[in-house]
């Protein structure tokens, strides 16, 4: 049985179809990438799996158990962790506190412990801090971990977000564009980090525009276009798939104008949805992604 299986997922926003019959599975400790042009429905699919959006139709199963329509915190409780496309750190809290958020689900401590500072309180707090340090070491954070998270440089904040997701001790980790906005060296480190995460036995689903990284790290690639799955297979097969090439480069001749119109529509949908894919970085990266796919 696969760890995550998405069956015929559909999501529409007032008549606009963001996801149109998406099915894919993720096995234990597998790295699966979800790729596709901007507005293809990748982040929307993530939001359905993690409970932030309620799908219009279809089922999502985690280890055979249906999680469709559950609350995000409930899904997190079953062992799913995620990062966000636009960083969502607790900016005014310390870096350590950010990672301690990952401990929320497994830290056994009640308010009586907190009020009386019982031995259990001291033990759990110590354990929580040790774990936070451990995961910050694991992601290779170099910056100041006692200060506010927002004071860290962008690339370091990405690491903190991943450390926070890992501290939850998930079975399934969803990374939404972990390499967006990172420079060349940082991307290489991110690649190494994703491999180290796999060695922990954690299954990873990756949304990424950097084709180099995707082809390098993924065991399987799912390609979306206009909310539909157009390919699912090993990276080397997917990159030769005519449908994928067409999605990234467009068709040669007919229907050119129609196609551009459609693309615009879908893009708009995703933007209004508040995930704010409209920032400059995302756009630039998309361009990169297309270029790499071409090569």
């Amino acid at each position: 049985m696969s760890l995550l299986s998405v069956e015929d997922l559909r999501l529409s926003f007032g008549g606009l179809l963001a996801i149109d019959g998406l099915s894919f599975t993720v096995g234990e400790a597998e790295i699966v990438s979800v790729i596709g042009p901007n507005g293809a429905g990748k982040t929307s699919a993530f939001n359905c799996v993690t409970g932030f959006y309620r799908p219009t139709a279809g089922r999502i199963l985690l280890s055979g158990r249906e999680i469709t329509g559950m609350r995000p915190s409930g899904i997190a409780g079953l062992g799913v962790s995620r990062t966000f496309q636009n960083l969502r750190l607790f900016g005014e809290m310390s870096v350590l506190d950010n990672v301690r958020a990952g401990a929320h689900l497994w830290l056994r401590q009640n308010f009586v412990d907190a009020l009386l500072h019982t031995p259990r309180y001291r033990r759990t707090e110590r354990e929580c801090t040790e774990q936070a340090h451990h995961w910050l070491d694991f992601v290779g954070l170099r910056g100041d971990r006692f200060g506010e998270a927002r004071a860290l440089p962008y690339g370091e904040q990405r690491r903190v977000e991943i450390a926070r997701a890992l501290a939850r001790r998930p079975a399934l980790l969803l990374l939404d564009e972990p390499a967006a906005g990172l420079n060349h060296g940082e991307k290489a480190e991110m690649l190494a980090l994703i491999r180290r995460i796999r060695e922990l036995g954690i299954a990873t689903v990756l949304i990424e525009h950097d084709m180099g990284l995707v082809m390098e790290v993924s065991e399987r690639v799912v390609v979306l276009n206009f909310g539909r799955e157009i390919a699912d297979g090993r990276p080397e097969d997917v990159r030769r798939d005519p449908a994928v090439i067409e999605a990234y480069l467009g068709r040669d001749d007919e229907d050119d104008e129609d196609d551009t119109d459609d693309t615009d529509d879908t893009d708009d949908t995703d933007d209004t949805d508040g995930k704010g894919g409209a920032d400059g970085k995302g756009g630039a990266d998309d361009g990169d992604g297309g270029g790499d796919g071409d090569a």
Partner: peptide, 20 residues
């Protein structure tokens, strides 16, 4: 405590708190 941190997580970013 754990509860107080959760309060601050909610204050800082409700969605990220839910995700954790």
């Amino acid at each position: 405590s754990r509860l107080g941190r959760a309060w601050r997580f909610v204050r800082e970013d409700e969605d990220a708190a839910e995700a954790m």
